[in-house]
Structures are given as structure tokens and as C-alpha cells.
Simulated assay, not measured.
Amino acid sequence: MNIIEILKAIVLGFVEGVTEFAPVSSTGHMVIVDDMWLQSEQFLTKYVANTFKVVIQLGSILAVVIIFKDRFLDLLGLKLKRRSGPTAQGEGRLKLTQVIVGLLPAGILGLLFEDYIDEHLFSTGTVLAGLVIGAIFMIAADKFRAKVPKVQTVDQITYKQALTVGLIQCFSLWPGFSRSGSTISGGVLLGMSHRAAADFTFIMAVPIMLGASLISLLKNWQYFTLDALPFFIAGFVSAFVFALISIRFFLKLINRVKLVPFAVYRIILAVIVYVVYF
């Protein structure tokens, strides 16, 4: 393992950390990067490469847990004093059962069609389609959103809204569509502020991503070899640091810029990749 390979791990961690929770599809970016770069590494078999992707995803998950630590403690009933702030206002209070309701649709569908999705949908072509269709959905959400959102904070979300956002999240099973892109757009269409929809998206992301990552790690534990370990560690740390920075920046920005700029970026990216590949 040389310094160049470590630098590549850091770059890949950067791609994961910056894109995982922005509505631009981290899966789409990683599939594109995989085709262009990751598979060129001789020491990375297909299985080691897939394990590496799981490891850096765990770095991004850790960043969300740290940023929303008070919220997660509150959901688990372990928080003694509620923090004042944009996610802790209002008469209501987000409940763990609401998060579970939001998780169920995509969780069930993902388990039922996991093998089919892995076999048929993880390609550059399908990702490009997901990027463009998801971008159109995001633009439509901004166009038809309520001028004054009824739900200003995540504490005001109802069970019905949680379930509907969960159903919309099923679109994100198509690589390139984006989990955050689908759920934030769906939340906005349901009358949530962009920040409330983003907070709910990030909170829902942790258990479903953590569960999927741990299952994948258990299946591929044998690929944690001494040769690949520095590559894994560098990618994990990189993804964690860049996710920590990008999530904080995104949450401050989302209510001001809305979704259209991210949608435009997705379309431009899809066009560039299409020209390069096809």
C-alpha cells in the first residue's frame, strides 16, 4: 500500500462524505467513480471495493450521529433536557415510532428486491436516468411547494406525513435518484419547510444505512486484510470529516437555496458523464 493509494482513498472518502446527505445521490457518484477509478486499483477485487464503500459510508453515518446526537438521545428517551433550537421548537415532539413508520416502506421493499437492484440497477446508465428523473422531481417540489410551510420544524411532523415521506423514499432504491433528494422533495410537497424535511431525512437515514452497512460488513468481513486496512481507515476518516463539514453547511443553506440548484447540478453532471461515456 503506497501513498498514492492512500490519497485515492481520501478522495473517495471526500466524494462519499460530501454527497451522502446532499440531494445529489452519493450512490450515483460512487458508481460513476467506481467505473472511472476504483476498479482500476489492482489490489481491489470487486468484493473488497464493495466493502470499502460500506466502510466509508459508516464514516458519513457517524458524522450524522454526532451532529444529531441530542435528537437521537431524545428519541431513545435518554435525554434529560431538551435543547432549544430549530429542531426542538413547537408543541409537538418527534417520536421514535414516527421515524420507524417512515423507515418501513423502503426498508421492506429494499429487502425484497435487494438482489435484483444489486444485479440490474447499479450501472452508469441507470444512475444517469436516476439523476435526471430525480432532478425533475426536485424542481417540481420547489415549484409546487407551499409558500408558507405548515411544518416549520421536525417536531411538527405527523404520522401520516412520516408514512408518505417513507413511501416516497422508495424511489431512492433506484441508484442515482437520491435518498435525501426524494425525501426532502416529498416533505416539501407535503407542506414541510426544507429544513424540517432535511432534518427528518437525516434522522431516518441513520438506522436504515447503519443496518444495511452492518449486514454488508458481516457478509464481507474476510476482506479486512492487513493490506487493505490502511485504505479502509483513510477512506473512513476522510468520509467522516467531509460529511461533518458538508452536513453542517447544507443544513444552514437549504432553507435559503432550496432544491433547484442541486437539481441543476445533477442534470449538468448527467450530461457530462453521458458525453464522456456514450
Rank of each mutant, 00 (worst) to 15 (best):
D155P: 02
K143P: 02
A106Q: 06
Q98A: 05
I184T: 01
P261F: 11
L121S: 07
K8W: 08
A263V: 11
K8S: 05
I32D: 01
V260W: 12
V55I: 15
A106W: 02
V275C: 09
L75P: 04
L190C: 08
F240V: 07
K79A: 09
S84T: 13
G59R: 01
Q161K: 09
L173Q: 02
A212P: 07
I139Q: 07
L38D: 01
R266A: 07
G77V: 09
A9F: 03
V54T: 15
T126Q: 15
W221R: 12
A243L: 04
L62V: 15
N50A: 13
A106V: 09
F144R: 13
T183R: 02
A198I: 06
L167G: 11
S172P: 07
A205V: 07
E114H: 14
P23I: 08
L226K: 13
C170F: 08
T27E: 03
F68G: 03
Q156G: 12
A197M: 07
V15Y: 00
I208E: 01
I61M: 09
V65T: 07
L78V: 08
D199K: 05
Y223G: 00
E114W: 11
K258E: 15
K69A: 10
A146N: 14
G186W: 00
A129D: 06
G110L: 08
L259E: 04
A49Y: 06
P207L: 08
F242K: 01
P261W: 09
S180R: 02
G107L: 07
F137E: 02
V65Q: 05
Y265N: 07
S213W: 03
F249A: 13
